[in-house]
Simulated assay, not measured.
Amino acid sequence: MSTLNEYLVQKRQAALDRKDKALQLEEIPAQTYYAKARALGRSGVREIRIRDFQVISDSPEDYAGYNLGPNSAELQLGVLGSCLTHITLIQAALLQVSLDALEVEVSGQLHSFAGQPGYEDIPVYPYNIAYKLHITSSESPEKIADLHEQVERVCPIFNLLRNPQSIKGEVVLHSS
């Protein structure tokens, strides 16, 4: 079985190749991503489609769900953890930092009565978000600190959550 460090060699080469390919273009375009979510029939389960992938989101049974998948707040924390993991791997590969193991834990709070009378001061969004990067490595603490600084500098989802964004929304009504 291959190790994480063997993977980092492949990841480094892929990142360098991708950068070289992009630099050959006159202008480097931004990538557009797309996701679609819909509520399914009697269950209310949320089906999320991204490329050829399907993810299911659901509520616990005490909130009229069937507990068939994580709720939206849990998915958001998972997305942050996934992005931090991926960016840590990329940066470790580029900086040639040896990693024997990597795991990210993400936590946050969401209050079910947020914004309602008596709870107006509680945010209606996940808050107190925190993460722990568990790294097993023979590298120096200074090198790992440099890695961590670089990860926070370039991690897209970490920075999306840290920096407010403007989101446009619209309703398209279809008659039944």
Rank of each mutant, 00 (worst) to 15 (best):
L75N: 10
L99Y: 01
D121M: 07
A22G: 08
G81R: 05
S57Y: 02
P60N: 10
S2A: 14
E149Y: 10
K11N: 04
Q91F: 09
E152N: 15
Q165P: 01
I50F: 09
I129W: 09
A92N: 03
V79A: 15
S98W: 11
I87D: 00
D121Q: 15
K132F: 05
L160C: 03
E47G: 05
I122V: 15
F113G: 06
H134C: 01
I90M: 09
P123L: 12
I56P: 01
L25A: 14
V106N: 08
L99N: 04
P60V: 07
K11Y: 11
I90E: 06
K21G: 10
A37G: 12
D100H: 10
L23N: 02
Q116T: 15
H134R: 15
L84Q: 02
G69K: 00
S138Y: 07
Q96S: 08
C155V: 11
D58T: 00
P60G: 10
A114I: 09
S59I: 00
A22S: 11
Y7G: 13
S57L: 15
L4H: 05
E120Y: 09
I144E: 09
L75D: 08
H86Q: 13
S43E: 10
E170T: 07
F113A: 15
P117I: 00
S72D: 01
Q31M: 13
L173T: 14
G81I: 04
I28M: 06
A73R: 01
L84Y: 00
R153E: 10
G44I: 09
L25M: 14
L110G: 00
K132A: 04
G78Y: 02
C83L: 02
N163I: 13
S98P: 02
P126L: 11
L147N: 13
A130P: 00
S138Q: 14
L161T: 05
E170H: 09
L84F: 03
I144S: 09
I167R: 08
V151C: 09
P126S: 05
S175D: 13
L75E: 03
S59H: 12
S57K: 03
V106T: 14
R12S: 02
Y131T: 02
R46N: 07
R46H: 11
A37I: 13
R12H: 12
F158M: 08
S98C: 06
K36Y: 13
E27S: 13
K19G: 00
E26W: 06
S166P: 06
T136Q: 14
A145D: 15
V45G: 03
D52H: 11
S176C: 02
I48G: 00
N163C: 02
P117N: 04
V9E: 10
P60R: 09
I144M: 04
S43Y: 07
P141R: 12
L75W: 06
S59Q: 15
R42M: 01
E120M: 10
S2N: 14
S43M: 01
T136K: 15
V151G: 04
P117E: 12
A35V: 14
V172S: 06
I87M: 10
K21Q: 11
P164M: 04
L4V: 12
R153W: 02
A92K: 02
K21L: 11
A39P: 02
A39C: 01
A39S: 14
L77H: 07
E61A: 06
E74K: 04
I50Q: 03
Y7F: 12
A14N: 07
S72P: 13
P164H: 06
A64P: 02
E103S: 11
E6L: 00
